[in-house]
């Protein structure tokens, strides 16, 4: 136990050290300068990036969670494998291939990027919704029915609260992945911080590369943190997994 703690501490602080070292190196070489010299472009790209993530995630949320709930209803159980396999299929196609496919249908631009990101966010959200609801002890549902709860009451009072942790974890995973993947939107002319990253790659300009990549990373970390806070607020006290209490 103690040994594990020491190792985890060592690992953690070495990582912090490396990150600090990286920033020191990057700042010394003026790699972040574009953020300040071209600050209006930078904020424009960030805004685009956030729009891509926001629109695609909200769309996915609106489809995946109700979909997961629907599929776990008794009368729709039989449809589960069809839906699950379809959603899985969406995930197995490489992201660039999805983008390429979308270009041939929707052309290039914001819409195409949003659509591809939307497809990508569906699976984690959907799968965690289904898994969360499925993991609820059958006896609880039986007790609820036996006490005279109606199906809607069982869903909102028992199933969703107890699945909330799993569902929100899925949402968090999807959104954080989405922030990273949104950098690819540049490829289809969707804008976002990917513009600087790809420019940096093409011009061998570390400045553009880092001024694009680091904000994306920080954004992902920040959003992850925010969503964890949200989880803590939403998930009922008694349904949290033991280590978080």
């Amino acid at each position: 136990m103690n040994k594990k703690k020491v190792i985890s501490l060592v690992v953690r602080y070495s990582v912090y050290g490396l990150v600090a070292l990286f920033f020191f190196w990057a700042i010394r070489n003026h790699y972040f300068d574009y953020i300040f010299t071209e600050s209006s472009t930078f904020w424009h790209l960030i805004k685009q990036h956030l729009q891509l993530v926001l629109v695609s995630s909200v769309l996915a949320l609106l489809i995946a969670i109700p979909g997961g709930i629907l599929v776990t209803r008794k009368s729709f159980r039989r449809a589960e494998w069809v839906v699950s396999n379809t959603v899985n299929l969406g995930q197995t196609i490489p992201s660039l291939a999805v983008l390429a496919l979308m270009i041939s249908i929707l052309g290039i631009g914001f819409k195409t990027a949003v659509f591809a990101l939307f497809i990508y966010s569906l699976l984690p959200m959907y799968r965690n919704t289904v898994a969360g609801i499925d993991s609820i002890d059958e006896n609880l549902i039986d007790a609820a029915r036996g006490m005279g709860m109606k199906p809607v009451q069982i869903l909102f009072r028992i199933e969703l609260p107890n699945a909330a942790y799993s569902i929100l974890a899925g949402v968090r995973t999807a959104i954080v992945l989405n922030i990273g993947t949104a950098a690819l939107a540049y490829v289809v002319g969707g804008g976002g911080l990917g513009v600087w990253i790809f420019t940096g790659i093409q011009l061998f300009d570390n400045g553009y590369l880092i001024s694009g990549a680091i904000p994306v990373t920080l954004l992902a970390i920040f959003v992850d943190y925010l969503l964890r806070l949200l989880e803590r607020l939403i998930v009922p006290e008694g349904s949290k997994p033991p280590q978080e209490m």
């Binding site: 609880l140 007790a143 036996g146 006490m147 005279g148 009922p236 006290e237 008694g238």
Partner: peptide, 22 residues
């Protein structure tokens, strides 16, 4: 059916307490 169940107390082996409620 619902009214009937609410008029009948129901206890099961695994107690069936809901973890999300006090």
């Amino acid at each position: 059916q619902t009214a009937l169940r609410r008029k009948i107390g129901y206890v099961i082996q695994s107690n069936g307490l809901f973890p999300n409620m006090t």
